[in-house]
Nucleic acid binder design. Sequence first.
DNA 1: GGGTGTTGTAATCGGATGATTACTAAGTGT
DNA 2: ACACTTAGTAATCATCCGATTACAACACCC
Lengths: 194, 194
Amino acid sequence: MSSGERREQIVAAAMAVFGAKGYEGTTTDDVARTAGVSQPYVVRLFRSKENLFLAAMQAALDELMRVFRATLADSPSDRPVAKRIGEAYVDLLSTRGLHQTLSHAWLLGGHPVIGPAARHGFAQVWQFFRDEAGFEAEQARSFLAEGMLINVMIGMRLVDDYGSDARITELFRACFPTELPHILDIAPRGDEPW
Amino acid sequence: MSSGERREQIVAAAMAVFGAKGYEGTTTDDVARTAGVSQPYVVRLFRSKENLFLAAMQAALDELMRVFRATLADSPSDRPVAKRIGEAYVDLLSTRGLHQTLSHAWLLGGHPVIGPAARHGFAQVWQFFRDEAGFEAEQARSFLAEGMLINVMIGMRLVDDYGSDARITELFRACFPTELPHILDIAPRGDEPW
DNA sequence: GGGTGTTGTAATCGGATGATTACTAAGTGT
DNA sequence: ACACTTAGTAATCATCCGATTACAACACCC
C-alpha cells in the first residue's frame, strides 16, 4: 500500500480513537492497532503524536466543511438552509469520531500547538456560516450553540440513557423532534472502546 | 490542618488543573503541587486519580447548583429568570476550572466510572431547569446549548483572539452583547498552565 | 512520659508510553 | 545481478506517572 493511502487510513483510525478517548487518553499504539499497523510506523509517518492529532483534527474540519459546502451547493431550496445544514451535521455522526475529535480539540486551548490550531479552525467555521451560508451573527451563534450541545450529548454517550431516564428522553425529544430514530441509529454507544 | 480542610483545598486545586489539562492530561503531582502538598498525600486522601476527578466534578456540580438556586431564591424578579441565571453562570468563571472540568467530564461518556457519573450529573442539571427554574423543554434545551458554547469558547481560550481576529471579536459580541467587559476581565487566558 | 491516632513526606516500584534504532522484505530501474 | 528506494516491523530505551511502603513529626490522652 502507498504511504499516502496508509496516512489516510491512519488518520481515519486516529479520528475514531482520539474522539473516543481524547488526546492524552489515546496512545499511538491504540491508533496503530485500530489502523492495523505497528506503532513505530505511525510515529514515523506523522513524526509525533501531536502531529497525528493535528492531522486528525484537520481531517475532521475538512470533512465538516466539505459536507456543509456540498449541502449548500445542491440546494433544493424547498427547505431552509439552516435545517439542511443541521441535518448534514447529524449525518456526519456516521464518520466515527469527527464530532468528538473536534470537541476535544476545542478544549485544548491551553496547549501551545493544538490551541492555536483549534482557534484557527473554529474561526473558519464561524466564517463559513457568516460569509458562505449567509447567516446573521445571531443565527450563526445559535447554530454553533446547538452543535456544541449535540457534541456534548454524543460525547457523554447520553444515548445510552435514552428510554430509561425520563429526563434524558425528554431532552432528546427536545433536541431532535424529527430525526430521533436516525440519531439513535447512528450515534456511537457505550459498546465502543472506553 | 484537618484532613477535611485539606480535601477541600485539594479539590479546588484539582478543579483548576483538571479544567486546564483534562483528566488524562493531568497528573496527581500537578494537583498536589497546585494544592501545596505532596503527591502521595493526594493519592492517600482520595485513593485514586479517578476518585479525585469524581470529587472535582461533583464539587463543580454542587457549586453550580448552589449558585443557580441562590439566584432563583433572592429573586428581584424585575428581570427574567433566564437572564439572571445566565449571568450567574458567567460569574462562575471566577471559580477557576469549574466550566472546563464539567466540559471534560461531559466528553468522558465512554469511561466506565466517570461516564455514568457525568450522565447522572447532567440529568440533574436538566431536571433543575425543568422543575425548579420552571423552564419549558425548549427553553431548557436552548439554555443548555448556550452554556455549552460558552464552555467551548472558554476552553479554547478564544478570549486570546478577541480584538485581533475580526471573526472572533464578532462572535464574542454576539454571545455577550452586554457582559463583554466582565467576561474579558474574569475569563481564564493563555497565561495559565498549558 | 509513653501509647495512640493523625497529618504529612521521601523513596521507590512497576507498568505504560512516545520515540529511536536497527533490521527485513519487496519492488524498481539499469 | 545489483544498487537504491519504499513500506513496514521487532526490539529497545528513557521517561513519566499512579500507587505503595516506610517513616517522621506532632497532638492528645491517661
